[in-house]
Structures are given as structure tokens and as C-alpha cells.
Design a protein around this nucleic acid. Sequence first.
DNA 1: CGGTTGACTGTTT
DNA 2: TAAACAGCCAACC
Length: 108
Amino acid sequence: MTRPDRDERRQRILAVVDSIPHGRVATYGQVAREAGLGRHARLVGKVLSELPARTALPWHRVVNAAGAISPRAGDSPSLQRRRLAREGVRFTTAGRIEFARFLWRPET
DNA sequence: CGGTTGACTGTTT
DNA sequence: TAAACAGCCAACC
């Protein structure tokens, strides 16, 4: 089997993000592994950073391994936080998400 | 071909 | 608990 090209990797990543259930979160590394891309957490971040602003994809359900919203170049992460809060995802006073309650655990 | 970048992560201070 | 460090690797230049 040939190594997936750039577009295919991107498509796999987007498909995984799209499958994260409402009210749950996944880490960048988790998305990469689910997409069959091993240690490409950073690639996941790169792909998400290029999404159009109006996308219907639930990109806000992807957080870092510390359970926090990763800082990014442009705007503030408050939008992501609001979207998660609206889905019932709670944050600790330290601004972290409790994986014990909200981490997505895909079956099989 | 070589160096830099980065919505990352696990380990060590 | 938090910051620093080191490892990571595709994408870009």
C-alpha cells in the first residue's frame, strides 16, 4: 500500500474530526492516530488552521493533550471555549477540560 | 539538499 | 502545578 499523499491525509483528518460526537473532545494526537497517521499531531493542527472560517466541521472539539485550548497565532481561543461550553463541556478553574468526563472514546 | 516552522506531546526540572 | 526541554515530522522556502 502506497503512502497516503497530502490530500488524502488531509481528508482522513477532516473525516475523523467530523466524527467527534457532540459534547466530547479529542486531542490532536488522538485524531492523528484515528486517521492512521501515527505521530502527526502537529499536522492535525496545521490542517485545522487552514479551515475556512465558516466550515461546518466541529474543529472546536479538538484540544491539546493537557486538556486545554492550544494558543494560536491569530485570534483568541474564546470562540472555541464558548462553543464547547454550549455543548456542555465544562472547564476547571485552571481552564482545563476533565478528560475523565469529556474525552471522546471511539469504540473498536 | 538543508534549515525553519508549528492549533503537538511526553519527560524532566 | 507549571515551565522548560527534547523529540517529533510534514510542509515550506
